[in-house]
Design a protein around this nucleic acid. Structure first.
Length: 430
RNA sequence: UCCCUGGUAGCUCAAUGGUAGAGCAACCGGCUGUUAACCGGUAGGUUGCAGGUUCGAGACCUGCCCAGGGAGCCA
């Protein structure tokens, strides 16, 4: 007999098929059992009627516990009363395992409890939908870049020194010396851009900051493209096309999942180029108009970002921050050297920064002095300086945070639900 | 690291300083179309930990632990 995924049941109306899955929930009226079976692709109501199956099977159905693994066989039929519109009239059933008492009931739970049971929590429809959308976001990013001639160049996870100096690193032993988990693949992507023209990396990054907010994980994933012969404005063009493409792909292919999590897709449908581009100076003016006592030269806080993004109906670029706000490798604006040729992209609806990027310093003398000014270990950056000695060109890149992007697209209030097994301060289990 | 809030049954939560309780889950029984099904019953507790105040503490006080929310930092 043909095994069918629940999501494909509609194509098999009237046929006898089998579904291999787990019992999500069960309702019974004594002589008729309704088994809600999930298989990872969806939920199907399987109807077991006394007298229509062997008594042994009918009784086994009665004994099934939540999340017991089960194979049900029967005829697919349309029924308005069934969730999803189709149900299975069970003829035969094979119980693979009767599950122990399942910790996650079909009702509300606290976050701490759910995170302790994350390995089971991901079975629930809402978490399943979020992680399917994450999968689509990742694939959309890669398709977009692959189609435009970018080469995937994996960056190392173990690194000899800080990429950005100041922020906190996870340290680990590396034989007789120390190594650090990467904070960003960017510097390596700059090497790649000079080798391939356009590259990107996609991988986990690690920040040992003791951040306790809805926007932070200690382990998170970034897509980091880097492009040779590319200046800031062109980089922003790519970014707005990428983000629009990703949102479009989710709307196109994951609308059932968006419906499961109850996301209002109206704001997402507006995400199309061009995105507004405002300078740091203009952003400061907007904040002051809103009564924020903001000192020029500071970086924006979470509330500042919310005020700024609420001014627009789509993601907004903020470009040309004061150089002291940004990393050492950011190229100063030739017209105003106190500003960096950089841009952050703020997601709408108060979701904050989802992209940070900019044009990199291409002058070896300036870069060397910046490394010194930031008291970075010069030895560790010898190779990075080489990139400016051997055929230096203007180049730009950016990093898109996957979890923040997924949280925004899904309309979630915390990034921890956007990654299968979140790593947070004080949480590394399961 | 700082500020705020919380920790009671497996889970979600009640309980003027005066006998620790409900719903769900589990278990037993009933019900032929259920929609987090419903109805009846059974069982389930070192109230986060350690001290203290009191005739009496889940509640009040002190310290600690853990979690949530926020700040800073950042994607």
């Amino acid at each position: 007999m043909q095994s069918v995924r629940v999501s494909d049941l509609g194509k098999h109306e009237g046929e006898e098929v089998e579904v291999r899955g787990w019992l999500y929930n069960k309702r019974s009226s004594g002589s008729i059992h309704f088994l809600l079976v999930r298989d990872g692709s969806g939920l199907v109501q399987s109807v077991v009627v006394k007298g229509e199956v062997d008594d042994a099977i009918f009784q086994a159905a009665d004994k099934l516990t939540q999340e017991s693994s089960v194979i049900v066989r029967g005829v697919v039929r349309k029924d308005r009363r069934a969730p999803g519109g189709y149900e299975l009239g069970v003829k035969d059933m094979h119980v693979v395992q009767v599950a122990d008492e399942y910790p996650i009931a079909l009702k509300e739970h606290g976050v701490d409890f759910l995170l302790d049971h994350r390995h089971l929590w991901i079975r629930t429809p809402r978490q399943n939908a979020i992680l399917r959308i994450r999968s689509e976001v990742v694939k959309a990013c890669r398709d977009f870049l692959d189609d435009r001639g970018f080469v995937l160049l994996d960056a190392p996870i173990l690194t000899p020194a800080a990429c950005e100096g100041t922020t906190t690193l996870f340290e680990t032993d590396y034989f007789d010396t120390k190594a650090y988990l990467t904070q960003s693949g960017q510097l390596y992507m700059e090497a790649g851009a000079m080798a391939f023209g356009k590259v990107y990396c996609f991988g986990p990054t690690f920040r040992a900051e003791k951040s306790k907010t809805r926007r932070h994980l200690t382990e998170f994933w970034m897509v980091e493209p880097e492009m040779a012969y590319t200046e800031l404005d062109e980089s922003m063009n790519i970014q707005e096309e990428l983000v629009s493409y990703v949102v479009g792909r989710v709307l196109e292919r994951k609308s059932p999942e968006l419906a499961v999590i109850g996301r209002d897709t109206g704001p997402l449908a507006r995400v199309k180029p061009p995105f507004p581009r405002i300078s740091y100076d203009e952003a400061v003016e907007i904040l002051r108009r809103h009564g924020v006592d903001f000192e020029w030269g500071n970086d924006f806080g979470g509330q500042d970002e919310t005020i700024l993004s609420n001014e627009f109906d789509r993601p907004v670029f903020i470009h040309r921050y004061p150089v002291q706000c940004k990393a050492f490798y950011m190229k100063p604006d030739p017209k105003r050297p106190e500003l960096a040729l950089c841009a952050d992209l703020l997601a709408p609806e108060g979701y904050g920064e989802i992209i940070g990027g900019g044009q990199r310093i291409d002058d070896p003398v300036l870069l060397e002095s910046r490394i010194k000014d930031n008291r970075l270990p010069a030895d560790a950056y010898t190779w990075y300086l080489d990139l400016r000695k051997y055929g230096s060109v203007p180049h730009s890149g950016f990093g898109l945070g996957i979890e923040r992007t997924v949280a925004w697209i899904c309309g979630l209030d915390h990034v921890r639900e956007t990654i299968p097994f979140p790593r947070l301060i004080n949480r590394i289990y399961p």
